[in-house]
Design a protein around this nucleic acid. Structure first.
Lengths: 345, 345
DNA sequence: TTGAAAGCGCTAACAG
DNA sequence: CTGTTAGCGCTTTCAA
């Protein structure tokens, strides 16, 4: 293959082909060409296919800006997030994109730390570009983005972030996930199940802890800490430093804590999963798979959440009525080896 | 704050204000309003500010599609990647966005697994939307994306992925980073430095290994394996199972391997960093910071690489001439505790 | 200094 | 069945 120097150095070479060129080539008017290509209007099959052939010969692709100007939509949505690390946003984004790509919709990703000024710049840029809608997302469901998205004149769907009242909002079902985790441990015959989790200040921590307590039936004990491996270690120290029966299962608030717990137990020669089952939360591949043994954990199905967010924002954009309120999407148990039990994979 | 049900349920309420409305309010023609707002043309300062005030009162924002149709640019660039996990793409994206947001440019993120059909759909969608340029990126520098981006009629910049000859391409300086790692170990007085790295089939592995060999001066030894913690463990087993002098430093091909190495050494009661210094590569926060002790490592400065990619693609779009070829951007030593030595932080 | 008019590339009425 | 016309919201000659 040969590359002209020109091409690589300064971009564009060939002019874009317009519908006018297609019309010329097919020997019809621009209007007819438009109708032929969009499968609208009525005309002989022969004409339609002649136009389509001309278009494909010329490599015609309609200019989305011209089209958008008329149709008042850009086939574009914005995904706004303050999750710079992407732990939650990326799977969400994958879902959104997967849902929308077939409809020709592209996604602007806007990452806005926690800077209101930056957020406003991004939102304004999206609005200028006439996005069909905005999906607001974050890294925790009890904090709002640092920008007001109400009264925008484009639809907004909130996913994995706190939403104003009456908004359309999507979160994962923390309580349900928690329940699944505990039920699985009980299924495996565990009876002394402890919950080691993150800071009390997180709504999801309270939600999961509440569901845990209900599921274990009053006998539970919850240790709050930070979202770190370090805390997992420390929690094990605390649990094993007191006398009496040790736990036979530890349900952790996230995979990092779970990894810390598993490592700490191994260092004490407590066998996982033989003596103690450990279950995580998040299914963060890099953590869950590298743990020895690999973590059984709860997946929040963020990709599915993203798909749903994409679906809803487009529905709203199309003028459909969507019931406002918070939708909780189910979590899913992912079985690896840290609990024992059935092995999928 | 009160939310009208209407607003939340079916999106748009107020009509967008057009430049026509601004012109009316300011009592001038649309043409004058345009010039006033864009600081072009000549008119009394009074008129100009009157228009600007009207615009800001009405909350006017120009429709980017209408504007783009004329100017033939969309103030939009596409970031194409096959790095679904986002390990490399996210920092890159952050850099691109940071560089471009001030210029009003938004970024489409398109993740394309390794599916050529999906890639084509995404590229076509971007082209239809008249992106000003495309940044192609990936997860390794010796593999191409599954799509041909030459002869596109928009500029393309390659970042962290293999580029065709004569393209503008950005990668991090693997050899330089490797050299920095080894030099740092030597500075700390280490003399028996071993390199534990990933699969030989990766160009960056060969590149780093080559620079390592040069830097240690012929006495080196390189162990190739996989990019996993597991392999880090195993490598330590191998190294410590043979007789003779043990290494006093291990330079790892990535942070995951380094973590495996550190964990394995701790399990053998070999002190890090007192007896052995361990240095990683990537500065993947989640891994580097959670390791005990936290990893000293090499950062590839992907965010800076992203900024540069953004800068270049816009320069190309503006018709500027950019020298083709591969640009290597410097890596940077990040000192934590796994090597000993100065403590920043 | 200001405004009227043309037109970016496309779609949608309405005629023919 | 097909083409002519108008116009999306804006910028940009060009004339007044």
């Amino acid at each position: 293959m040969v590359f002209s120097r020109e091409t690589q150095l300064s971009g564009p070479t060939t002019k874009r082909v317009r519908i006018y060129d297609v019309a010329q080539a097919a020997g019809v008017s621009v209007a007819t060409a438009s109708k032929a290509l969009n499968d609208t209007g009525r005309m002989t099959e022969e004409t339609r296919s002649r136009v389509k052939e001309a278009a494909s010969n010329l490599g015609f692709r309609p200019n989305a800006m011209a089209r958008g100007l008329i149709q008042r939509r850009s086939f574009t949505v914005g995904l706004l997030t303050n999750d710079t690390y992407g732990r939650f946003t990326l799977p969400l984004m994958a879902g959104v994109s997967e849902e929308l790509v077939d409809q020709g919709v592209s996604v602007f990703l806007c990452t806005i730390e926690d800077d209101p000024a930056l957020a406003k710049i991004h939102v304004d840029a999206m609005l200028d570009k006439q996005v069909d809608g905005i999906i607001a997302s974050g890294k925790r469901i009890d904090r709002q983005l640092p920008v007001d998205l109400t009264n925008l004149n484009v639809p907004v769907v909130y996913a994995f972030t706190q939403a104003p009242a009456e908004a359309v909002s999507l979160v994962s079902d923390d309580a349900g996930g928690s329940r699944e985790a505990v039920e699985w441990l009980k299924t495996l015959g565990r009876r002394r199940i402890v919950h080691v989790t993150g800071p009390k200040s997180f709504a999801s921590v309270e939600e999961r802890a509440g569901a845990y307590r209900t599921s274990v039936g009053g006998s539970g004990s919850v240790l709050f800490g930070t979202w770190s491996e370090q805390w997992g270690h420390e929690a094990v120290s605390q649990l094993w430093s007191v006398g009496g029966d040790k736990p036979d299962a530890i349900f952790c608030g996230n995979d990092q804590i779970a990894r810390g717990v598993v490592d700490a137990l191994r260092e004490r020669d407590v066998s996982v999963p033989d003596e103690v089952s450990v279950i995580g939360f998040d299914n963060w591949e890099i953590v869950a798979a590298a743990t020895r043994p690999p973590l059984t954990t709860i997946d929040m199905n963020l990709k599915a959440l993203g798909r749903e967010a994409g679906r809803l924002v487009l529905a709203l954009a199309a003028g459909e009525t969507v019931e406002p309120g918070i939708r909780k999407l189910p979590c899913q148990l992912v079985i690896r080896q840290s609990c024992g039990g059935v092995l999928r994979n």
